[in-house]
Design a protein around this nucleic acid. Sequence first.
DNA 1: TTAAAACTTGTCAATCTATGACAAAATTAA
DNA 2: TTAATTTTGTCATAGATTGACAAGTTTTAA
Lengths: 112, 112
Amino acid sequence: MKATFGEYIRKLRKSHRLTLTQLAFQLDLDSANLSKIENGKREFDEKRLEKLATAFNLDIEQLKTEYFADQFAKKMYQYNCSPETLIVAEEKINYLKSINTKQGKIKFENEK
Amino acid sequence: MKATFGEYIRKLRKSHRLTLTQLAFQLDLDSANLSKIENGKREFDEKRLEKLATAFNLDIEQLKTEYFADQFAKKMYQYNCSPETLIVAEEKINYLKSINTKQGKIKFENEK
DNA sequence: TTAAAACTTGTCAATCTATGACAAAATTAA
DNA sequence: TTAATTTTGTCATAGATTGACAAGTTTTAA
C-alpha cells in the first residue's frame, strides 16, 4: 500500500461513503480530530486499530502492518535514516527473539 | 550489530574503560539514568546521539542506524508485527520521498 | 575482611507531549 | 443560498518522560 496511514483511512472511509462524523463515531473520536489524522496532522492511536478493523471488516494483522510501517517510514524520512536501518532492525528483532526464547520474556519500559 | 542499543552503549563504555559517571558526564546525564539506559529500563534520547558519537569518535550516521533500528525492533517485537512490516515501511519511505520531490517538503506533527 | 568505587533501583516533582473537546472558519454539494 | 461536511485553531488536561537524588547492592582492590 503506497500511502500514508491517514490517506489509507480516508480511502477506506470514502469507499464506504462515510462522513468523518460517522466514522469518528465508530472510532470513538471527534470528527475534527479524525480529519487531522487523515491529513497527517495527528497520529492515529494504536489502541483504535481494532475498532478500525471492525468498521471496515479488515484483517487486523494487515492493518497493524500498515500502521507500524507508516510510523517507521515517517521516522526514517524525518531523521534521514539510511536504508540500512531496516536491515539492522530485522537483525535486532531476531536478536530480541533469541534472547527471549533463551531467557524468558523481555520487559519493556511501558510494561508492568 | 546484534545487541540492543543499551547493550551497545555498555560495550562501548567498557571497551573505553569508562565508568558510568564518566560517560554520563560527557552525555550530560545522571549516572543512575545511564545505568537504566544500558539495562533497557529507560530510553536513550535522540538528542544525545551527537554527544555519544563525539565521546567514542563514531560515525553519526552509523549510530543513527543502530539507534532507530533498535527502536523499530523493540516496537515490532512488542506488538508482534509481521516481518512484512519492514518491507511495507520501505515502500512507504519511497512514497514519502516521491511526494516530497513532487510537492515540496512534508511537515510532520512535531515540526513547526 | 573491609572500604571505596561502581553500579542498580526506587521515587517523585517538573517538564514535555499527546489527546479530547469545542468553536469557528472554509469548503463542498444540493 | 443554505445545509452538510471538512478543516483549522486553541486550550486544558491527562499521560508519559526526564532529571535528580537517596538508598541499596555488587564489584574491586588492598
